[in-house]
Design a protein around this nucleic acid. Structure first.
Lengths: 222, 222
DNA sequence: ACAAGCTCGATTGTCAACAAAATCGTCAGT
DNA sequence: ACTGACGATTTTGTTGACAATCGAGCTTGT
């Protein structure tokens, strides 16, 4: 229970940072929650120095706040910030879709169709968790086929604070259906190698995602 | 000479990171160059711990490489990476221009015209340094008026590795003229509140910047 | 009951000494 | 000369102890 690692080699600051980031992504570390050094040390097996280095890295990523003599705490994201994240995502995922349409390999196109088919099943069978996983795979595949590792990393960063919200939204059946319609439209444009249409469709998809999210969020007062 | 700070309060890790980042931006710290802890300590007045924290932050930003028992060194950016930076910039600056066209205040529009006028003078009078500064101001103003602090920060990060290259390119008179033509076209779209046209023009502008850059770069074998 | 002040444990910040590794120069041996 | 091993120096990594600060709970006086 005490360790997320296999009690073997002492974890590096990067591994510790990954461990914390994953917890934040999953919502196991709530916004405003303080991260006590000793706790992290106990749970990861890292030294104090490494934990502090991990805090620095995560603070640089904008995931943590560090206050003098108060330590690190999970930074909360306002609705306005979520909006800005979605604006950036729309731009970056847009060009990703466009680039994929042009430069993806045939295998990647086929794989995309395959995932799409599985997504359809999830919608019919009401499997939100599976849909969430496949959806992440779908977006990741686009990044891989687009040929920009940098944009992939940027998107991954942008996704951390909204991952949980996104996942929750998949429990709404209507949302799943509209998301899937978007996917179909994007896929179609990609298969036609129509970069412009793919980009436009992807942007609309992301924007729609934010609209849906902001409605949920205001309902839940978060 | 020994300190970049006013010998008063001991600098924080963030201040030290800013100091190093600025040096990298200016090219005073070359790619692959090693950063020796003691040097930074001497030059900034920070403690060893703070310097190491600064290294962690910059490594998280992708600006430094840290190798065990070798310390930190400036990460070099390949031409392919520069391409990806420009692709991301095109996407983000594109939406920035579009958002500015819609939501900027009248003062901001006016200020943009003013800077534009000064830029024109620089082109005529062959003042590359001044052009560079004004150009940065111009882009910053767009970010401010677009209402996305997040995208502004992303762009700032993306700009660090290419800042020097960009600056160099302004010593080419022809480049200045074409860049200025782009600016005029973007400005015109913005004043017409035509977000779509502004975005398209901005994208073309950024892409053109990369094309120019890659020509120079291959010429100089960097 | 309540508020101000205080004390003490918990937590973070800092420093200096020490350990580990890499780097550089030196010096034989060919 | 060149090569390779050796050793001294430099540089980085790690640890532990100590200082500074915060915050919760207690005390005390009204």
């Amino acid at each position: 229970m005490t360790l997320g690692f296999q009690s073997g080699p002492a974890p590096t600051s990067i591994e510790i940072a990954d461990w914390i980031r994953e917890r934040i992504r999953r919502g196991q570390l709530a916004p405003e929650q303080r991260l006590v050094e000793v706790d992290i040390i106990r749970k990861t097996g890292g030294s104090r120095l490494k934990v502090r280095e991990a805090f620095q890295r995560l603070a640089a990523e904008g995931l943590l706040d560090i206050e003098p003599y108060k330590g690190a705490s999970v930074r909360s994201t306002s609705l306005e910030e979520v909006r800005q994240i979605y604006r950036a995502r729309a731009a970056l995922e847009g060009v990703t879709a466009a680039d994929f349409a042009i430069s993806a390999t045939d295998e990647q196109r086929e794989k995309l169709q395959q995932i799409q088919a599985e997504l359809e099943l999830c919608v019919d069978n009401r499997e939100p968790e599976r849909f969430g996983r496949l959806n992440a795979e779908w977006h990741q595949l686009l990044v891989d086929g687009s040929g920009s590792k940098l944009i992939g990393e940027l998107l991954q960063r942008l996704n951390v604070p909204i991952h949980r919200l996104l996942f929750d939204s998949f429990y709404d059946a209507e949302r799943l259906r509209t998301a899937n319609n978007d996917h179909r439209r994007i896929l179609k444009a990609i298969l036609h190698r129509d970069a412009r249409a793919a980009e436009e469709a992807m942007r609309a998809h992301v924007q729609a995602g934010f609209k849906m999210l902001s409605e949920i969020e205001t309902a839940y007062q978060i």
